[in-house]
Simulated scan of single mutants.
Amino acid sequence: MAGKKKMTYAALTKELETSALRKIYVLMGHEEYLISYLRGKIYAQALAPGCESMDAVVYDLDKKISNLNREDLLADIATPAFISPYKLVHIKQSGVFNRALGSDTLAEWTGILERVGEGTVLLFEERQGEDERAVRIDHKLLNVIEGLDGAVVRLDFQSENELLNWIGAQFSFNKLNITKEAALSLISRYESSMSMIQQALNIIFLYAQNQELSSIDLDLVDFLCRQDLSGTIFDLTDALAAGNIDRALDYLDRLLDRREAPLAILAMISNLYRRLLIAKELKTSTAIIESGITGSSFYANKLLQQARSFSLEQLEEMVEACFQCDLLIKAGEMKDQDALVVLLIQMSNTAGKRR
């Protein structure tokens, strides 16, 4: 099992199916579904059924390394399992990889890691928030772990193509077909979250089995899955572009009927128009993806298509209108729902101006 390079999800999955466990694992990144899957594989190989309470110890530190009792940790990594093949010591959200370590702290951690006993597995689980900066791959403690033949795996959000392949593989396994449009809609409405998409797929598979279906299309996804709020905001914007204020207000009513908070609706509208402005300036889906505002070609093309309905000046005016609406609400000068209605009327008037 020698090798100092950071592993991929696929490589570690294969290794866990064919090899003995390593002493140290670090699972880190933004994609909770993949982290949970690999954690489950490690638990299943390390522990005998029903022995988790005896042979596993969990330290949940909430990214506060000061919460860790080092004496307890040293005792746990030196104590063998009672019944299971391995003793499992699981450190969750230590936060130790999110900061630079001084020489003394690095030496202390190196000493701890070197004392992990035979038959013991030390598992670090470091989930990162969506807006949280990724851990540096050259972090000194990660280098130490790799030097001790530990496995370091970064598990970040999957690309659109990776998600399409993953969804397609699940449908093939269940002997079903799904249209690309429906698969892309799943990715969009669940914001590329594999955990959320998996929950939706479980519902789809059960329904398809019950109804003896062989293929899934967008209409069925719309019927079975949560509403695509981004799609509703796009529809609202289409209505504004067409000068149909009544239809735009109808979409607003639908969102309010679903108990979406007015400020959240405003944030979605404002966010979309900022992205439309960027799309108008960048002009191609490739440039939009490279800008970082989306990783989805499906969403990038939707932005481009809708941006064509407005001039650059109109989009700038609409973004400013969203900003002013937010100020009015937060200053208490207008009720939130009334402010949204006024905003849509104002934006409809802007869209109706000669471009």
Rank of each mutant, 00 (worst) to 15 (best):
G292M: 14
E290H: 11
L266N: 02
F124D: 08
L142A: 00
K4T: 15
L141F: 11
S192A: 10
D138T: 03
Q305C: 08
L88F: 07
A248P: 12
L148V: 04
R258D: 15
L249F: 00
S348E: 12
Q170I: 13
L123A: 02
I77A: 00
D219Q: 13
S159M: 06
E290L: 02
T232R: 06
G352W: 07
R133C: 06
K5T: 15
L122N: 08
C51T: 11
K5L: 09
L163I: 12
L186T: 13
V116C: 10
R258K: 10
L21D: 01
V221Q: 00
R136S: 11
R226D: 15
V96W: 07
S192M: 02
L122C: 06
T105C: 07
G95Q: 04
L255K: 04
K4Y: 11
W166L: 06
K6P: 15
G150R: 03
S195P: 01
A169G: 12
A321S: 13
S291G: 00
E126R: 03
V58S: 07
L236S: 03
D217K: 03
P262S: 12
G231Y: 11
M318R: 07
S66P: 03
L101A: 09
L224A: 07
F298P: 09
N174E: 12
T105Q: 15
I289G: 01
L220K: 04
L113H: 08
N143T: 14
D149N: 14
D219Y: 00
L176F: 07
L164Y: 09
Q227I: 15
N244Y: 10
R354W: 11
L201E: 01
L218V: 13
G150A: 05
R354H: 12
S84V: 05
L218A: 02
E126Y: 04
T105P: 13
L303I: 03
K64C: 00
I329F: 08
N161A: 15
S185E: 15
S193H: 06
A100D: 15
K175T: 03
E130I: 12
E71V: 14
A75N: 08
K353F: 13
L106E: 14
K92Y: 01
P49L: 05
K6S: 15
I269E: 02
M318C: 05
C225H: 04
N98G: 15
F171M: 05
G150L: 09
G150Q: 10
N69P: 13
Y273G: 00
L240T: 02
I245P: 11
L142I: 08
L252F: 02
L263R: 14
V116K: 05
I204L: 10
L206A: 07
L122Y: 14
L240P: 08
G29R: 14
V319E: 11
A100M: 05
K64S: 00
I197M: 01
A20K: 15
V26Y: 01
G40F: 00
E162A: 12
T179N: 00
K180T: 05
Y37A: 02
